[in-house]
Design a protein around this nucleic acid. Structure first.
Lengths: 140, 140
DNA sequence: TGATTATATTTCGAATTCGAAATATAATCA
DNA sequence: TGATTATATTTCGAATTCGAAATATAATCA
């Protein structure tokens, strides 16, 4: 292949999924980035801001902003890192925890409906997207 | 499957690709949305604002903004639709055309490098992403 | 046909995102 | 060890994005 059709399709798929998530999650007073951060902490437990940033792939300055928002909403708190004084560890507050406990099952249900159209190919899609995502751009 | 791992991977893949595109295209003074709009017109020829919006999947209000930007840069112009007075047809100016002529080959080369890691599975990825993207959310 | 509903686009204000520069601390290396 | 370079985070200003409301025109239907 030589065209970039694949990228076009990738963009459209994501935008479409993102729109569903946005609408899905809006009534809980969260946007997709906020939800993304909460989701990481929900699944991985407390993590450094830097580590969260590597998971959600947004600019450092955007991280600061999202975290401030989540702190204001009392879903998350910054805890000084034990030995690296540059860092903060992010963790869910009890409110954040129970917020996610309340939201997450519905979110999974709604999203699974869409993902289920893939059937057994879901694992294949995962594999291919991982290949795409982990490409090292050393040779650009 | 029951988790949303697939979505996580989808997001990461896209963000990573998007970052490459952003850096790739930055030196040409364009951002990803602007480039997306130009790309659609470059490939499909003149289209209604509405039609472009359906391709790039951004909010109508964002469309107005991007178009204004592209008009200021003289890459694109709004032409009154022949019979539907609500609509405008968007088309590349000669400047827009030659800009894309200049940029596009490099962009393809850079992106193909990444896509080529997929090998023959690229067609499979397209198929699966299309399935994901075209899901009708009638039953949400 | 005239009233009502739908569609295409823009305007508005607020929220979000970015990149560059600033700040603070950690790691490296001469 | 002290100077230099690297890393984690925030601040800043500008750019981008959104959704709701406004505007204009088209389509529908009583």
């Amino acid at each position: 292949m030589q065209s970039l059709k694949t990228l076009t399709i990738l963009f459209r798929a994501l935008k479409s999924v993102e729109q569903q998530i946005r609408e899905d999650i809006r009534r809980y007073g969260l946007n997709t980035t906020e939800f993304g951060v909460l989701e990481v902490l929900y699944h991985k437990g407390p993590l450094t801001i830097q580590e969260v940033k590597e998971k959600v792939l947004i600019a450092a300055s955007s991280m600061s902003y999202v975290i401030d928002t989540l702190v204001k909403k009392a879903y998350v708190k910054r805890v000084k890192h034990s030995y690296d004084k540059r860092s903060y560890v992010l963790e869910l507050t009890p409110e954040g925890q129970s917020k996610m406990d309340g939201i997450y099952p519905m979110h999974v249900a709604s999203m699974r409906k869409r993902l289920d159209v893939l059937g057994n190919d879901e694992a294949v899609l995962q594999k291919l997207l991982k290949q795409l995502g982990t490409y090292q751009k050393k040779d650009l």
